[in-house]
Design a protein around this nucleic acid. Structure first.
Length: 544
RNA sequence: GCCCUCGUAGUUCAAUGGAUAGAACAAGUGCCUCCUAAGCAUUAGAUGCAGGUUCGAUUCCUGCCGAGGGUACCA
């Protein structure tokens, strides 16, 4: 379909060139109403202004010329108000795509944009201070699915998790565990100010007591190290449940230990972008066109998070990825431009860094907003949600919405909604096809590879086929936008067309030749569904 | 105050500047002697307000109203 579209567009340009019309970008897309044909171009409307002629007249001129050069696979070209040019594609073009799909199978739809290139996707990056929340879920699934989309274009993707186990929050976590440990030994509870209140803190304290006995002293490093290990185990477990696996975990501490941060600060000083004020060290962001300067080193001597973040991004640049993607929540929207700004100032090319900002999920319980706080343990863990509704529902819930939308998630309706989740609609299509195929196998029909796709002339067959052939196009769209919901929308529509076909056309009938063709059609549909599911990370059930 | 994102049906969400704004859930009505009714068919229902650009605006621009986030020597 992509090839055919390019061919038509080139033909349009050839013709407009012959007519001495100026060359203008134009669209070529399926019209909503299929009575207008299969593809539709607005070229005449675009040209109308330049040429100062009615668009209908221009359209008719172009069509006359197009008919003279006769484009392959085009059955008919027509003009409709206010000046659209509509192309009707010959049925056999769609019918024969089945062979292509069956032939490429698991590779059908793969793009080649990233072949031979590498990409790094950083996501989740939650510090190990508590279990992952529903909020982290959006990040995790978005990052993983974007990684899948890149892999489908041929990129070699590194999924990376960046964390900090040396900050204030980790200290408080350790102190909280310690307080619980001594509480278990009978002392009064002395939680630090802003201490962590979750049950999991008590669990960790209990397990430390079981492992290490009663002899630990206040301030023992073991509290922190065990707390951290336990939290990371929990986080990884949750991610693995969601079928998310990281290639690399990077500790912020690395960049202090290897001298990168010192070097980074020295270079900024060398460029006169650093100054001292009120006992703190500032980065002259204003001299680079920003609104205000930022603190880099606090008066306590501790660097702010911007410093290691920038050093970390420089490290990623130095690792020579062709594409670097960060997945951040809306709360980071203001921070990353400073990181980019500093890297630019040091002469790095940052054009291959893309930052995806997703909006927060608003959780509702009894019509009330739930304020998420890991510290106060007022959160809903991702684990609980997975247990309640299942992996596929969780993944699809986040994938089917644009990352720009502020989501509302009603916890009371979570399990209720899971029964009616749209993901089942897609999976049901796959299960139905699987059933047909196994039935055909049982019946021992002469279902060899020989079939004649020209039997597929029913409206619902062509309607299904016409969407099937657009799969590679949607893969590219999803790559360009880095928006997984493009694929979810595609699969939803594909499933709808399949279910429609299924209700109106029997696959296995007395008519052997037709049955063979229809079996090929549903096998091809199944391939596309399975490939789409793979990108989205949801399962392709054989039965439901 | 300033910056970012959003505002679409009763509800939760879709829609490369294109023709009649799509689904799902909720409400109404049909369809299982026939490959899975987690389905099909069908009725009703929406672009916050006011301008502008355009042949054409849910989409782009301006203002207003409303929501979320940021504007920290928190990350």
């Amino acid at each position: 379909m992509i090839k055919l579209k390019n061919h038509i567009i080139n033909s349009i340009y050839t013709v407009t060139n012959n007519l001495s019309y100026p060359k203008k970008e134009c669209s070529l897309a399926p019209p909503k109403n299929n009575e207008f044909g299969d593809l539709c171009s607005n070229i005449a409307l675009i040209l109308a202004k330049n040429l100062k002629k009615p668009p209908l007249e221009i359209a008719n001129n172009i069509v006359t010329e197009l008919n003279n050069i006769s484009i392959k696979n085009i059955a008919n070209i027509s003009v409709t108000n206010p000046g659209f040019i509509n192309f009707k594609i010959e049925d056999h073009y769609f019918q024969f795509e089945i062979k292509e799909i069956l032939d490429k199978n698991q590779k059908y739809g793969k793009g080649s944009i990233g072949v031979g290139k590498t990409a790094n996707v950083e996501f989740v990056s939650a510090n190990p201070t508590g279990p992952l929340t529903v909020g982290h879920g959006r990040n995790a699934i978005l990052g993983d699915t974007v990684s899948n989309i890149l892999e489908w274009q041929g990129y070699k993707v590194t999924r990376e998790y960046y964390f900090n186990n040396a900050g204030r929050q980790m200290r408080i976590l350790a102190q909280s565990v310690e307080a619980r440990y001594f509480e278990l030994l009978g002392r009064d509870l002395e939680l630090p100010q802003d201490g962590y209140q979750g049950q999991y803190i008590i669990d960790i304290a209990q397990s430390i007591l079981n492992q290490k006995g009663q002899g630990l002293k206040s301030g023992d490093l073991i509290f922190k190290s065990i707390a951290e290990d336990t939290m990371f185990d929990k986080i990884k477990y949750t991610l693995n449940e969601l079928k998310i696996y990281f290639d690399q975990f990077t500790n912020e501490k690395t960049f202090y230990e290897n001298g990168d941060i010192e070097k980074f600060m020295d270079e900024l000083k060398g460029k006169d972008l650093i100054y001292e004020k009120e006992n703190a060290t500032w980065f002259k962001t204003t001299s680079l066109g920003k609104e205000q300067d930022r603190v880099y080193i606090k008066s306590t001597g501790e660097p702010t998070y911007r410093v290691p973040d920038t050093a970390y991004h420089r490290d990623k640049i130095n690792r020579k990825y062709d594409l670097i993607i960060d997945v951040f929540g809306a709360d980071h929207a203001d921070a990353y431009p400073d990181v980019i700004c500093a890297l630019d100032a040091l002469g790095h090319d940052t054009s291959h860094i893309k930052v995806l900002i997703y909006q927060f999920v608003t959780l509702l319980r009894d019509e009330e907003k739930v304020k998420m706080s890991t510290r106060k343990a007022d959160f809903v863990s991702l684990d609980d949600l997975i247990d309640q509704v299942g992996i596929d529902v969780v993944r699809y819930f986040f994938i089917m919405r644009s990352m720009n939308s502020h989501l509302d998630f009603d916890l009371n309706l979570a399990s209720d909604q899971s029964d009616k989740n749209p993901v089942y609609y897609l999976q049901y299509a796959h299960a139905r096809i699987s059933n047909i195929i196994s039935r055909a196998n049982d019946l021992d029909l002469p279902m060899n590879d020989q079939f004649d796709p020209s039997y597929l002339t029913h409206d619902d067959e062509l309607y299904l086929l016409k969407h099937m052939v657009r799969f590679p196009e949607y893969i590219n769209i999803a790559y360009e936008n880095l928006e997984p919901q493009n694929i979810a929308n595609y699969l939803q529509e594909l499933s709808a067309r399949f279910h429609k076909f299924y209700s109106h056309c029997r696959v296995i009938t007395e008519d052997i030749e037709l049955s063979k063709s229809r079996l090929a059609l549903v096998k091809a549909t199944k391939i596309i569904l399975a490939n789409g599911f793979k990108i989205l990370g949801i399962s392709a059930p054989e039965r439901m």
